[in-house]
Design a protein around this nucleic acid. Structure first.
Length: 279
DNA sequence: GCCCAGGTGGGAG
DNA sequence: CTCCCACATGGG
């Protein structure tokens, strides 16, 4: 099926660092695994995207996943017309970014893995984790071609796996963090669906009670997994922006209610600027 | 080989 | 409270 939308760039979303299971398969064409489904998406033009799913599946899953009911254009216009030159450029540069509504458990585990790793490294670990502990599935397209894919592991699978087995997926010292977090979710010491309903601040605090989850990872889980768009994760890149561009005097309160979207545009822009320099 | 990566826990001061 | 370091692994 085909959808029309402003501010929806597959390339930008795939490279945004908020998800690790979307990859480019051709020019303007991407695959994505989420909610136990496999989907291919093609950017036909700036506002047109083709999806390999039924209208029903789109309505049931992907419409919500891509947060289609939120007006990102309103935010982008606000930043473009604001008085902050850095955010102005960031909004122009990354105008197709959206904050996805991913599965909270997947986001929690993925961002525990993310610490002290670069994005290609995280992607590799997440892929291996899914291949080792996820469920093997097949996607069959209209021509009968079969694509094998793996779902994200369930909490019980990771909670019951040994740390040695988990470490085989290249997680290093994070193996215990992953197992313990899975156990906490399985035993309902932490209820991620419940945390969606609470305030960002309370969700972050609760997430930080997990071993291996600090301020940054908790804010990422809150933003990308619980859709608290007022979360503002500060990683090494954002930290550099806050220091180099704003002299540690950035007034976040000007962007109340959508801090996380501002963060996403900052992150995407500064990373791509860094890429230009190194080639 | 070397440095660094969407950090965090733990210990010292 | 704020430094400081080890941590396991792989990408560039």
């Amino acid at each position: 099926m085909i959808i029309q939308s402003k501010n929806f760039s597959l390339k930008q979303i795939a490279e945004s660092g908020q998800l690790f299971r979307m990859k480019q398969i051709e020019n303007n064409k991407y695959s994505l695994i989420a909610y136990e489904k496999y989907l291919e998406l093609t950017q036909l033009d700036e506002c047109t995207i083709e999806l390999t799913c039924s209208t029903k599946e789109y309505e049931d899953i992907w419409k919500d996943y891509f947060d289609m009911d939120f007006d990102y254009d309103m935010i982008v216009e606000k930043l473009k017309n604001g008085d902050d030159t850095f955010l102005k450029k960031a909004a122009e540069f990354g105008s197709g970014l959206r904050i996805l509504r991913q599965e909270p458990f997947e986001v929690l585990i993925s961002f525990i893995i993310s610490q002290n790793k670069n994005i290609p490294g995280i992607t590799n670990c997440v892929t291996k984790l899914c291949e080792r502990f996820g469920e093997r599935k097949e996607y069959i397209d209209n021509s009968g071609n079969i694509t094998v894919y793996y779902t994200f592991p369930r909490p019980e699978t990771l909670a019951n796996a040994s740390v040695e087995e988990i470490r085989q997926t290249g997680l290093g010292y994070r193996d215990e963090y992953v197992k313990n977090a899975a156990k906490a979710v399985l035993q309902k010491e932490i209820d991620l669906e419940e945390l969606k309903k609470s305030k960002n601040k309370d969700a972050v605090e609760k997430l930080k009670s997990l071993h291996g989850v600090g301020d940054k990872v908790a804010n990422c889980v809150s933003l990308y997994g619980l859709h608290h768009i007022d979360a503002f994760p500060i990683d090494i890149w954002i930290s550099r922006v806050l220091e180099d561009v704003y002299g540690n005097d950035f007034d976040l309160s000007k962007y109340r209610g959508y801090e996380g979207i501002v963060q996403q545009y900052m992150f995407f822009y500064i990373r791509n600027k860094a890429k230009e320099k190194t080639g």
